[in-house]
Design a protein around this nucleic acid. Structure first.
Lengths: 216, 216
DNA sequence: ACATGTGAACTGCTTCACAGCG
DNA sequence: CGCTGTGAAGCAGTTCACATGT
């Protein structure tokens, strides 16, 4: 199923590519036209070698003795990350988190368009957010196909999350961003990312106690 | 500064500990009293060896031939993660994301108490959410000290994020959860975690285009 | 002269395989 | 006998160091 040339790119590399692109946009806004791996590394708390190695997985984008053209490299990264097109996103779950995500401007500005919202609450179904009508979660499969959805954002309660994920995937969607604090099971070939805010807090908690241990 | 016995525990291990704890709570709710590393591994899409290795970094919590006591292991993990106490959290930024986080029940139920909210918008300052008054961001340093804040959640716009982080850290807070889509610089000894929702979407975008490449 | 691109060395995480213990 | 706990092996990601190209 479409494995392409499939160099295996690590999660950390992809995360860094996203970061590099953000940094480049910052530098571009400041009028800087050329950049070395060293400067990018400093901005991202990493090493120049790491930066060059990350790029080298995809090609040669710099000029020896000179560095990288900010605008060219931005374009290249946008291409690699698939940000040179617009993605059709469905938001499943119109609760507090869902509504914050719907309004989140950073999504739209990076090409992620929330084209439909679904919820199971009869009080919400039929309402509109901006011009997007809230549809009945019961019609999930139909709506996802009608709207040609590429990516689903799951912002439903924990106990509904796996069930919803299963339906989403059965509808043919191959990318899911999950906000429910649980580990979902998805078949191979489906891209899944979790945003688990409680787990991030727990990691901070761990760091704090670990640190405290030696003090006293 | 308080490095304790300081076995270096990897980020991935800490993430998995959080997950294990959640799974244990699920199993406990289903009345299951004993569990093998194999069963935990299956729930978490990992291997039994990984599970045992993770625990072995902290001690021996199982019984050979038998497995782990669900309740004992839960308690142990809560202790390791620092979830056997309550943490005082400040929310900086009372926008849409901030308000969703304030209402997020999973935080409270895991011992993270948002004891104060700060914002710079005069229209918001003075309002109350539940019983928590929204304070003026200008008084950040005072408020964080008065309220004995352990952890700060930063939910401010990108361009304010680094400046706020600096002030937070100067106030003595040693743990920051950042929601602004940027890479913050913090001194050693300060624990920082990022929740970068756009970057997660970009990772999905990358996966989709990478997948598409071979098809056609 | 200077900064990239990259094989080689290294570090650290994961998996294996089995000895040890209940 | 079964499942844990753990050294040893294997693998992946990072860093080093330098040849390469401008």
């Amino acid at each position: 199923m479409g494995t392409g040339v499939a160099r295996k790119i690590s999660e950390s590399t992809v995360r860094r590519l996203s970061l590099y692109l953000r940094f480049l946009e910052e530098f571009e806004a400041r009028g800087i036209r050329t950049l070395s791996s060293e400067e990018l590394a400093r901005r991202g708390n990493t090493t120049a070698a790491q930066v060059r190695k990350d790029f080298s997985l995809f090609g040669s984008f710099g000029k020896r003795g000179l560095g990288y053209s900010v605008s060219e490299l931005s374009d290249t990264l946008r291409g690699l990350l698939g940000l040179d097109r617009s993605w059709r996103v469905a938001l499943v779950g119109a609760g507090r988190i869902g509504s914050a995500l719907f309004a989140y401007h950073d999504f739209r500005s990076r090409g992620f368009r929330i084209v439909t919202v679904l919820d199971s609450d009869p009080a919400k179904i039929g309402q509109s957010w901006n011009d997007v009508a809230i549809r009945d979660e019961a019609d999930l499969e139909t709506v996802l196909r009608q709207e040609k959805v590429d990516i689903v954002i799951l912002a439903v309660p924990v106990d509904a999350a796996q069930r919803m994920a299963d339906r989403v995937i059965r509808s043919g969607v191959r990318a899911v961003l999950n906000f429910a604090p649980t580990q979902l099971h998805v078949p191979a070939g489906v891209a899944l990312r979790d945003v688990n805010m409680s787990m991030e807090l727990e990691a901070l908690s761990f760091a704090l106690v670990d640190d405290l241990e030696g003090t006293g």
